Computed example of a mutant assay.
Amino acid sequence: MPSFQTRLKITGLRPGNPPESVMDAAVEALGTRHHVEAHQLQIAGGVPQLNLRFLVEASEYSGENRQAVESAAMMRDAVERVALTGSISVLRRSRGKWLPV
């Protein structure tokens, strides 16, 4: 199964939401469609960033990429309910490297 990673910048919390609700929302949303292999919060350029690694069911290459991008967008929508977000990226693991989709 192909492995993907999505990186989502978090620029703030919506009122009434604890910090842990951001990762919870991301993992829950992405987990409804794919197996989430790992998740972590990093600081990139002084901005918090969610990194989630997930598997997409094997099919044809462009279909796998499309599923990953659609799922990342769905995950972002879920996170937007509890936090303000910045840029998002989707990467695919290929020959030991993470490459942009």
Rank of each mutant, 00 (worst) to 15 (best):
Q42E: 14
M23K: 09
E60C: 03
L99A: 11
I88Q: 12
M1I: 10
L50H: 00
K9N: 09
R93D: 06
R76K: 15
R92T: 13
S89P: 02
G45Q: 09
E80C: 04
V36E: 02
V69T: 03
R93Y: 11
L84Y: 14
T85Q: 10
V69K: 03
V47M: 15
F54A: 06
V36R: 00
I43P: 03
G86Q: 08
M1S: 14
S3I: 06
R66P: 00
L52R: 03
A78T: 08
A25C: 05
Q42C: 00
P18Q: 12
P15W: 11
P15R: 14
E70H: 04
S94P: 00
I88D: 05
R81L: 12
L13E: 04
G16S: 03
A38E: 12
G31R: 02
V47H: 09
E57D: 13
A25E: 01
I10Q: 02
D24Y: 09
L13N: 01
S89H: 01
R76I: 07
G86M: 09
V56N: 00
R93M: 11
Y61I: 11
I43D: 13
K9R: 15
P18K: 10
P18G: 05
W98I: 02
G63Q: 11
L30R: 00
S94A: 12
V27K: 03
L55R: 07
L8Q: 01
A25N: 01
L55I: 04
A73F: 08
S62V: 12
R14L: 15
I88E: 04
N17H: 14
R76Y: 08
S62N: 12
H34F: 14
N51G: 07
N65T: 06
V79A: 02
R95D: 07
G63M: 08
S87H: 15
N65V: 08
E20I: 13
Q5W: 05
A44L: 14
P15G: 07
G96W: 05
V101M: 05
H39S: 14
R33K: 14
L91N: 05
G31H: 03
S94N: 08
K97T: 12
R7S: 09
E60T: 11
L41Q: 06
L99W: 09
V82C: 01
D24G: 04
P19V: 07
A26M: 07
V56C: 04
E28L: 14
G12L: 11
L13T: 06
A25Y: 01
R92V: 15
M1K: 06
R7A: 10
I43V: 15
Y61Q: 13
R7L: 10
G16R: 01
T11W: 12
V56I: 14
E70C: 00
T32I: 04
S87M: 15
P15N: 08
Y61P: 06
P19H: 07
A73K: 10
E70Y: 06
L84N: 12
S21Q: 11
H39K: 08
E64Q: 13
R81D: 10
M75H: 03
W98A: 05
T32E: 11
R66K: 14
R76F: 13
E80F: 00
G31V: 05
S71D: 14
G96R: 06
S87D: 15
L55H: 04
S94K: 11
G12E: 10
N17C: 07
P48H: 06
P2M: 10
L41F: 01
G45P: 07
F4P: 00
V27S: 06
V22C: 05
